[in-house]
Amino acid sequence: MTLSPAPAGTTEVPVTPPEKAGASHLGRLKGSRSRSQAWAAYLFLAPWFIGLFAITIGPMIASLYLSFTDYSLLSEAHWVGLDNYEKMFVQDDRFMTSLKVTTTYVVVSVPLQLAFALGLALVLDRGLRGLSFYRSIFYLPSLLGGSVAISILWRKIFGVDGIVNSFLGLFGYEGHGWVTSPDTALWTLIILHVWTFGAPMVIFLAGLRQIPQSLYEAASVDGAGRWRNFRSITLPLLTPIIFFNLVLEVIKSFQSFTQSFIVSGGNGGPVDSTLFYTLYLYIKGFKNYEMGYAAGMAWVLLLIIAALTGVNFLMSRFWVFYGDEK
């Protein structure tokens, strides 16, 4: 244990005493080094491991078990085998509706939101006075995204008497209740999602700053223009961050809940047009007291997202460039 690297004993002390730290690298025997590295890694991961086992894994396994039962929250669970899963795929039309609604939502709103966020991050990165002011302004909607007040605000915009209709009225278009019509309700939620692009924008901004300025300087010596800079420096170096945003936004959008819950009043209406997957799961679990079924839905969702994320990771080999790769 004495041979193990420094981090261990010194967590409370910010700076490792040099002799001790040096000691770990004196013996650069391959085996002991990788072993000491593993030890260090596990120590760095210690809080995460505790959290994983105490708070995350247990409930996950519990929910897996529950998905094979008829658990209702209010009474004991009974084993029902694959019934829940069978019902999901064979009988439940609303399950399929919710998948369709969610897929549309993800496929449309994620690329839109990311494009928006990246575009604004580029505009707001450098070269203009008052950028910090603009950045804050453009972030504001995201602060509001999950607020209860959104239900009203969205109606003020897309309602029959909303501002969109007043604007269209100028062109003689007759009002339409965008939020409450089954054909358009989902689109107002997509706009809501794109509107709250602040989180990926901030991550892009942070990512842009990771790109060494010196690269641009070198490029300008070579006489590269803006577009070429963007294509050959910014974009490639930003790919890990684009990738991160893509993976996370896909996961998050598949789990979207609050927007529909607030705007539709909790039922995914009108006529299930905004019935997000997790909203349906929530309805099943907490309103219809079919927690077993809801747990099954959660695992199906996990598999779907995991598969998509897997595809994302596979694809990333072809377009994501890491600084730590040589």
């Binding site: 089954p182 209406g269 009108p270």
Partner: peptide
């Protein structure tokens, strides 16, 4: 028992009629 869902079920059916779905 089960009537917790009734409001939503009725609303969905009603909306589908009123919106010509």
């Amino acid at each position: 028992k089960g009537s917790m869902e009734m409001e939503d079920i009725l609303k969905r059916a009603t909306d589908s009629v009123l919106f010509d779905k």
